[in-house]
Amino acid sequence: MYKEDRCNCQCQKYAMAQIPMQQWGELYDWYTALCEGTIFPDLDLEFWASANMPCTPKNCTSKQEALMTEINQISFAVNDLTLYLDTHPVCMQGMELFSKLQERRHDLLKEYARLYYPLTIDSMSGRAVDASGEFSWGDCPAPWEGGTCVCGTMRNAYNFR
């Protein structure tokens, strides 16, 4: 139960579903977490037809790819942890980790904006004009083109710039 001591009465067991509250436990490293789709090994319940897909780290071919990869991984950890804290609002371990990850994400977004282009309006931080005098918010390839991103899987065909 969400708060064990709240319900002292003999609870109605019929006609009501019950889901056990997740307990805080081991976490994946951030590479594996993004690959598997959760930071929590306890919730990584595979399907036979996709259970044989290994999560092996790929080699980055550029600094930009490496940075984007880390942004994806840290941002996903923040995202998955947010949902956990939504239903576990007093979990200290979760909140401490959240603060660290959130700070890291903030730094990474600033770094990416400084070196390449801004991923968010807030990370533009005064650099609205790019080197060619154009509004920098429109500089990057669209994310659906494949962007610049991920280590080892970049395909030039989708990087139109």
Binding site: Y2, A17, Q18, Q22, L34, E36, G37, T38, S50
Partner: peptide
């Protein structure tokens, strides 16, 4: 697709926890 499938299971767990919070 594998990533998206995994998210469905995480979200199911969270909605189950939301149900417990509501029941409380």
């Amino acid at each position: 697709l594998k990533f998206l499938r995994a998210r469905e299971i995480v979200h199911f767990q969270r909605f189950g926890e939301a149900l417990e919070m509501t029941k409380d």
